[in-house]
Design a protein around this nucleic acid. Sequence first.
DNA 1: CGCCAGGGGAGCT
DNA 2: AGCTCCCCTGGC
Length: 271
Amino acid sequence: MTEKILENFSIAQICESGQCFRMEEMQDGRYRVIAGNRYLELEQQGKVVRFDCSEVEYQNFWRHYFDIETDYGAIAAQINPNDRYLTAAIQTAWGVRILNQDLWEMIVTFLISQQNNIVRIRRCIKNICEAYGETKTASNGVSYYAFPTPEALAGLEEDDLMACNLGYRSKYVVRTAKAVASGEVDLEWIGSLNYQKARTELLKLFGVGEKVADCICLFALHHLDAFPVDTHIRQVLEQHYKRGFPNRRYKGIRGIMQQYIFYYELHGSEK
DNA sequence: CGCCAGGGGAGCT
DNA sequence: AGCTCCCCTGGC
C-alpha cells in the first residue's frame, strides 16, 4: 500500500474522462486499471489516494502514469476568469489528468474509437485483450489480460478482428500491427519526436486521421498542446468560441483544456 | 425492416 | 481546404 495526498486529482473523473478504456470502478470508490501489462487497484477519500502497490512501483511507474509531477493547480489558475464556459468546465473537471499511456495501446484504442461510442469502444478493447493478450496474475492474485502486442496481432488477416466487434476498423488495426511488427514503423522513434513531427508520422498510419493522431499525441506522448477536435468539441467551439478558441493564451496546455471541455460536455453540463 | 448516429477517415478535386 | 462517399454496429 502506498498512500499519497494529492491535489487536483480525482480517480473517478479520470476514469470517466474517456482517455483510458481499461480503467473501471469495481465497487463504489474502488477502481482498477490495467496499463500495458501492469495491474493496479486504488481508492480515494478526499485528497488521500491509496495505491495498492509498493512505494517503489508507485515511484517507478504509477506516479508518472497519473502525471503526478505536473502541477494542475497552476494550470487551472491560468484559465481566464472572464471565460464563463471554461470556468464552469474546470469546476466540474478539476481532478482530470492527462495520463501517460502506452503508445501502441493508444494507437489501437483510438483507431477503434472512430465513429464509435464509448460503451462499444470499451467492449472492443476488452475483446481483443481477452482474445490476443497475455494472461497475467496480479500480486493480489487477480488474473487479467495484458494488452495484445503488435506481434500478437500482426499474424491476423485484415478482417479477423471483426470477430472482436471492431467492424471496418479491423483492417486499420491489423495493418498497423503488421507495420509495427515488421519494423516499418518505429514507435520508439516516434516517441522521441516533438509534437508536430510525431503527428505527421502518426498520420501516415492507415486509419489515423487528425483527430486520432492528436489523441495519440496527447494521451501517449504527453504532447500537451495537442487539441483533438471531435464532434463534441466542434460543437462547443461553434457555440462558445465563435471567434476561435484562445489558442495563444493556452499555448502548451491546450490539450488539458480540451480534456476539461470534453469531460464537462460528457458529465458536467447535464444538458 | 429502414434509418441514423456513434469521440472520422480515405480519396479525390 | 473542402467535398463526397464510405466503413460497421447498435438503438430506435
